[in-house]
């Protein structure tokens, strides 16, 4: 029996990368996220383009899935499916952390909140499902930018407005933040989006280990951080446990 064919494996990896909603990636994004030389990635992309599996936008030069492939079946994860799978775990996250829990996915240039669980106290709260949050400053957005190359290009190329005095805006600092996020496996937002509010988030993967969203909590900085201003490890653990549980649920998925 012959072994696997490397170029086909790479082609499959590129298609997976491009699979999703309105996703467009430049050559360098594709190459770097798969650890390929640019020339190799370009050769594979051109072949896929000839087969109709990939199309190149004539203006930006970015690649997206081709109509031929879409005809074979649209298999990206439905966000409402994601919410249904996350429901039990995010309830538990809100309960164990005492803070409100959120599930976010990339949508256009921001984070779309697809699920929100209230903070478990008796206060009046408003459901934020359907709201958009910034990609560059929130914990959910940083997780998406760190793990999803499409989100990364949106955040890297988009405007990073200074929402508070603590918002990280420079490209180098932002990239360093994403490196830290990847190294730790989670992201934080310490009053970088809203004064007085701190957040923690971690990535959710589907059965192909593709990052499909981020799950996290948000609350008053006095509760999320200890007296020294450091994020409470207990809350980080709760968020990461939840993200793993949702990912496991998706991994055992029925499609």
């Amino acid at each position: 029996m012959p072994g696997p064919i490397q170029s086909l494996e790479r082609a499959a990896a590129i298609l997976r990368l491009l699979a999703g909603g309105e996703r467009r990636l430049g050559l360098s994004d594709v190459a770097s996220s798969l650890g390929l030389a640019k020339g190799t990635a370009h050769g594979i992309l051109r072949t896929l383009q000839q087969e109709g599996f990939v199309e190149q936008d004539p203006v930006s030069g970015k690649y997206q899935l081709g109509a031929e492939l879409l005809r074979l079946g649209n298999s990206f994860l439905d966000v409402h499916e994601l919410r249904a799978r996350a429901l039990v775990w995010t309830d538990d996250l809100a309960r164990s952390s005492g803070e409100s829990a959120y599930l976010g996915v990339l949508h256009q240039q921001g984070v779309l909140i697809v699920h929100h669980v209230f903070r478990p106290d008796d206060s009046r709260q408003v459901l934020e499902v359907g709201a958009m949050q910034p990609l560059h400053s929130t914990a959910l957005g940083k997780v998406l930018a760190a793990y999803d190359p499409v989100a990364h290009s949106e955040a890297a190329e988009g405007e990073r407005a200074a929402l508070t005095g603590r918002t990280v805006t420079s490209a180098a600092d932002f990239e360093a933040l994403l490196d830290l996020t990847r190294a730790r496996g989670w992201a934080a937002d310490l009053e970088e989006t809203w004064e007085g509010v701190a957040s923690i988030a971690a990535p959710v993967y589907d059965r192909r280990r593709m990052p499909v969203g981020a799950v996290g909590i948000s609350g008053a900085v006095e509760r999320v951080c200890d007296d020294d201003g450091a994020i409470r490890p207990r809350l980080v653990a709760a968020v990461r446990d939840c993200a793993r549980a949702v990912s496991r649920d998706l991994g055992a998925g029925r499609f």
Partner: peptide
Amino acid sequence: PNGTAADSADSGSSH
């Protein structure tokens, strides 16, 4: 099989 992390116990958080 992918997703070997799924093999661990299924409890999601502390109780």
